[in-house]
């Protein structure tokens, strides 16, 4: 029991990735324990999105290993499906399915991937929609909702699969400023419930509030890893200092 809890739920060892000639991720070593909340930040093009996209294999890595919940990510499709059942993802541009109603967006995967009966999937979906405070919009289409609402639906959609890990890829950067808070609030709630979360974001307030660790990436490498207080008040690496100086002003 205790042994299992000490096992990291995500483990990357010497992971490298290239886009053709371009070396995007360089020797990534990362261990994340169950229930940990990680915020990944860094300048654009530093490989932070690519890193979390490797964790559910939307991108494939070229060498090194990635283990998620004990499953090694490789070309094996069965493994891949199993990992994707455990890992939810929220995208910058929401990527809701525009031809399906909000409720159908949520119930599709549970019904088809987990083979849940329709009623059960819908009941659970409605519970989640209530939690993100959009239950009254369940029968609308994504195009009729505001950006903030859409992103909350997207979070609920991922949660419908009851994942162990949630990946957030800049979830608030495509939102109008007044909608950022409603999405962050949902994420904070989720964090409080003990979800393992990896979040690429520049919302430093959020990082300070929930993150156990902040990972700073630059040029495809993890440059600095620290607790948020340490990272924000006393960054060690010159590139972290430079980055923080830029975004905090």
């Amino acid at each position: 029991m205790s042994d299992q809890q000490n096992q990291p739920i995500i483990e990357c060892v010497d992971m490298n990735k290239w886009f053709d000639e371009f070396h995007v991720l360089k020797d990534i070593n990362l261990k994340i324990k169950e229930g940990e909340k990680i915020v990944i930040c860094g300048p654009s093009g530093s490989g932070k999105s690519t890193l979390i996209r490797c964790l559910n294999r939307l991108e494939s890595h070229q060498n090194g290993t990635i283990k998620v919940d004990g499953i090694t990510l490789n070309d094996n499709l069965k493994n891949l499906q199993n990992v994707r059942k455990e890992v939810g993802m929220v995208f910058q541009h929401f990527n809701l399915f525009p031809h399906l109603s909000i409720l159908e967006n949520l119930t599709l995967a549970p019904q088809w991937v987990k083979k849940q009966p329709k009623e059960e999937a819908e009941a659970f979906a409605m519970k989640l929609l209530e939690r993100v405070a959009i239950a009254d919009q369940a029968h609308k289409y994504p195009g009729q909702l505001s950006g903030g609402q859409q992103q909350r639906v997207a979070i609920a959609r991922s949660l419908c699969m009851q994942p162990k890990i949630m990946l957030f890829d800049e979830p608030t950067s495509a939102l109008d400023p007044e909608m950022v808070k409603e999405v962050l609030d949902v994420m904070v709630d989720l964090a409080k419930e003990g979800m393992t979360m990896l979040c690429v974001t520049h919302e430093m307030g959020f990082a300070k509030q929930v993150a156990d660790r902040v990972i700073f990436m630059d040029d495809g490498q993890i440059v600095e890893e620290a607790e948020p207080e340490t990272f924000f008040s006393n960054p060690r690496h010159p590139r972290s200092q430079e980055f923080l100086a830029q975004i905090l002003h």
Binding site: N56, Q81, R84, F91, H93, N95, F97, P98, A109, M161
Partner: peptide, 25 residues
Amino acid sequence: KGQYEAADALGLNYWQKMLKIILPQ
């Protein structure tokens, strides 16, 4: 591309992704 990725991330297999998400659109 986001539609393909969202379907993948939810764990839909190829045919589910195509029949339920991509082809209707």
